[in-house]
Structures are given as structure tokens and as C-alpha cells.
Design a protein around this nucleic acid. Structure first.
Lengths: 253, 253
DNA sequence: GGGGGGACAGAACAGTGTTCAGTAACAGTT
DNA sequence: AACTGTTACTGAACACTGTTCTGTCCCCCC
């Protein structure tokens, strides 16, 4: 946007009939670079901007570079690869929010709260779920988060074997649910339908209109499959998970 | 492999000093094409071959075309786009295997069996989970499968609201779990570690060696986080899910 | 003033999905 | 037997992609 207009470069090495560049040209060029130096933080920020505007499929290193008014190769001084950049974007998701200190009486609520916050953050950037789902949540800066989740599960009285899997299942659920949302959203964007309400209405109608003798249950459940708000469905699934986990807590007597 | 050697094409339109092609040349060329005509089935087959050999990242239309000894553009007569091809590959996954007729007494077992078969099929092709996870399981040819899953859930006595979400959760879990396996597998392939046993050993050791005062729970659970076989972990997570679902079945009295 | 060194630019390489203008081979008709 | 039309395919092109390499510029330090 505010990328400085660069004059067209002289064709490789030979200047032809062009007059030599006037001296003030250089001074002008040198005056301009009061620009902020490139940094990892600025790159990540620009990447998020491109992601939100263009979506995951069009998030390319060239787009990010353009966003910053910079050559592509400059990015590689701060970032090892595109995958590296994606991983850093993923890690930033968890900044400034940790699971709380375990309170065994309220562990289900605590997990629910954290999952909700997690989902909120995933939804904050378009297609973020698609990045998240491709990442393994065991990078060093995520260890404290995992640690605190484990703390809650163990304080709740879950057997170690269950506690160890619980985190995995949680992560899978939150990521998977949000990913599905992403996919529907994209499909909606492509089909030029106004909003999710209209889309969900159409889908509901489609399933309700299936031949009942062939798909009796799909027809019967059509109304339940696509809620107005996905949040309710998300919480419902979370409840199913938590009740399953809770069933492993031995009776404290 | 058995791709017919084509003679090098004459440079665009002009034959230069080359003698005119002898008449038997054409007849030879015409005799050869006893080759199988291209078909969607053959394309999908070739795509699977490339996927298994090269992995998802190197699965390209050009690779598939090369596998068949055919020009890229020829594929587009049978397939609308790469995404289309991926979707067809995904649908083929479910061919010839349906959830059984509902037996309310054995519903948990039935679901477990189906999930296991599902996972087996996902693991049959390298990186298949990465394709699966990007697909919405509501294409027409998958409707019967969803219908039968719903049938089992409802026959088990689950409230409609829960039954409608149960399928989603199941799909998310199976896909998510297998995807994570895929990611670890790839990471293992990159790091030139022999097999999963060695990898899981290394990981277990890494987590067990973390500073205990900072990560007491991670250290304590390290042994449980990476089993020898993922199947046990998969079944455990499935059990958690099923127990959660079961908790919604009203007492039949 | 004269290096060094880090930060950036430009061009290039080897690939990608997709399209489009052709062409070769066959089927059916005149 | 010659002429159609149809179909299935090719070759080349377009507009991209991630990544690397060679410079070149600028600033800081000696």
C-alpha cells in the first residue's frame, strides 16, 4: 500500500541510450529509507493480513513480501521456510493465554473455558484452522500450555493413561471442528451465498428433502445437523467429550 | 514404465532438412495404440500410486500424467480439477464397506468396528488422512454411510440432538487421529530415523528428561503419551467418546 | 577515510494447476 | 472411396509457487 514506488530497473547490466541517473536521484533514495527495518514480528503480522484478506490458498511468500513492500528473498533472512512461518503463526495463537491453575471442583468448566477461548482465537483469523490442523502441538513454546492442561486433568482425578490422551483428543476436537467450519465457510464464499444463515437453511432443506424411505434418519435429523450458531454445537460436542472423560474418574470415597 | 517411446517431435511446423517420414512410420504408429484408453478409474489408480510412492506434497497432476504416460491436459477430460480428483480419491475410500444394521445391544461395538475399519483404510494409503481431513463428508455417494451411522446411534437410544453431532465427532476424531499419525510419520521420514519404535522412544525420553520442577505432569505422563502401537491409543480415545455418548442414553425403564 | 558485514534486491530455477489451439484416429454417412 | 464430425489426446503457454544465489547498497566501527 505505502510501498515506495521504485523506478523501473535498467535492463540487465547495460544502460543503452538512457542518460546516467542524476545525482539527486540517489540522495532522494537515501532519504526515503526512514522505513522500519524488517523483523520477524512484522513478517508474521503481514502474513496474518494476507491470510485474512486472501485466505490460506493465496497466502504465498510473494504476497507477504508485497504486503511489506519488500523482495521475497528478504523474508528468508528472518524465516527459514514457508512452513517455518506457518509454525510461527500457529505458535502466536497461544500467546498470552494459559489454562488456569487446577481447581478440581470446576475442572470441566475450566476445560470448557479454555477450549472456547482456543476456538475464538482460531476463528480470529480466516482459515487459521487449516494451519493449526497441520501442526503438531509439541513445539517448545507450547509445552507450558500442555503442562497446564495435564495439570487440570490429573487434578480432576483422571487416571494417568486417560489424562495423557485427553489433551490429544481435546486438540483434535477443537481443531477438527474449527476446520470443518472453515471448509463450509470457504464453500459458502465460492457459491456466492450471502451468509451462514442462508447456507445452513439451504443445507437443512436439502437433507430434509431427501427420499424418506431411503434416508429416514438423515431426514429426521436434518433439523439438528445445522444449527444457527455453531457455538452451541461446539459446546455440545465438548460436553460429550467431557462426560466421557469424567466417566474414568474413580469414585472418591 | 511401459509408456510407449514416442519419437522426438519435429520442431514446430517446419521440417527443415529432414527427409519426409516414410509411409511405414505412420502404420507403425497406428499399430501401437492398442493401449488402454484413459478412464477416470485409471487416473484415480495412478494417483494412488503416486501418492503412495511420493507422498501428498509431491502428488501433482503432472506426476499422475507421467504415471500414465500421458499429457497433463488429457487428465482434464475426465477430472474437473485437482480438488475434484482428491475428492474422488476420498470417496473411493468408503467403497464396499458400510456400517452394519443396527443392533441396539451391541451399538458401541458396531461403532468401534466401523471406526477401526475406517482408520485401516485411511492408513492403507500414505498421507491419505491429509486428503480426508480437507473433505466434507457430505457428498451424495457418502449419504448412505452417514445414514447407517445415524441409524445405529438412534437405535442405541441417543437423543436426536446428540445423534446428529455424534457422526461429526466420530469423523473428526478418526480423521484427526490419523492425521496426527501422518504428520509424525512424515517428521520421522524427514529426520532419517529408522522406524516408529525408535521415534517414540526418543520422544518419550525427551519428555521424561524435561525439568521436573517446571513440567511435573509432562514428565509424569511421558510414558503414557507415546505407546508402542497407536492402535491402543486410538481405541482408548474411541472409548472415551463412546462413554460420553452413552451417558446421554436415557434410562430405559 | 576505509573496510566489514548485515540487509535487502533481482534474477533465476524448477516446479505447480489450468487452459487452449491444434491434431491424429476412428465412426458413420454419402 | 471420400468426406464428414466426434472424440481423445498433445504441446505449448500463462500465471503462479517456494527457494536459492549473486550482487549491491547502506550503516557502523575501526
Amino acid at each position: 500500500m505505502s510501498r515506495p514506488d521504485r523506478e523501473a530497473p535498467v535492463p540487465t547490466g547495460r544502460q543503452g541510450e538512457l542518460p546516467p541517473p542524476p545525482p539527486w536521484d540517489r540522495t532522494r533514495k537515501r532519504a526515503a529509507p526512514a522505513r522500519v527495518p524488517l523483523s520477524l514480528e512484522r513478517i508474521v503480522e503481514a502474513a496474518y493480513a494476507v491470510l485474512d484478506r486472501e485466505g490460506y490458498d493465496r497466502l504465498s511468500m510473494r504476497q507477504v513480501a508485497a504486503e511489506l513492500g519488500v523482495a521475497v528473498s528478504a523474508l528468508y533472512a528472518h524465516v527459514a521456510s514457508k512452513d517455518d512461518l506457518l509454525q510461527i503463526m500457529y505458535e502466536r495463537l497461544f500467546r498470552g493465554h494459559q489454562p488456569p491453575e487446577p481447581d478440581p471442583e470446576r475442572w470441566q468448566e475450566q476445560i470448557k473455558d479454555y477450549a472456547l477461548e482456543w476456538r475464538t482465537r482460531l476463528l480470529r483469523h480466516r482459515d487459521m484452522a487449516r494451519i493449526s490442523v497441520a501442526q503438531v502441538p509439541f513445539t517448545p513454546e507450547l509445552l507450558p500450555t500442555v503442562e497446564r492442561l495435564f495439570a487440570i486433568f490429573r487434578a480432576a482425578g483422571l487416571p494417568d493413561e486417560i489424562a495423557a490422551t485427553a489433551g490429544d483428543i481435546m486438540a483434535t476436537y477443537v481443531d477438527g471442528f474449527s476446520l470443518e467450519e472453515s471448509l463450509w465457510e470457504e464453500r459458502q464464499r465460492d457459491s456466492a451465498v450471502a451468509d451462514w444463515d442462508e447456507m445452513s437453511g439451504t443445507l437443512k432443506a436439502y437433507f430434509a428433502a431427501l427420499p424418506p424411505e431411503q434416508f429416514p434418519h438423515l431426514v429426521a435429523l436434518a433439523g439438528h445437523m445445522f444449527h444457527k450458531d455453531n457455538d452451541t454445537r461446539f459446546l455440545l460436542g465438548l460436553d460429550i467429550l467431557l462426560r466421557g472423560l469424567a466417566s474414568y474418574i474413580p469414585d472418591r470415597t
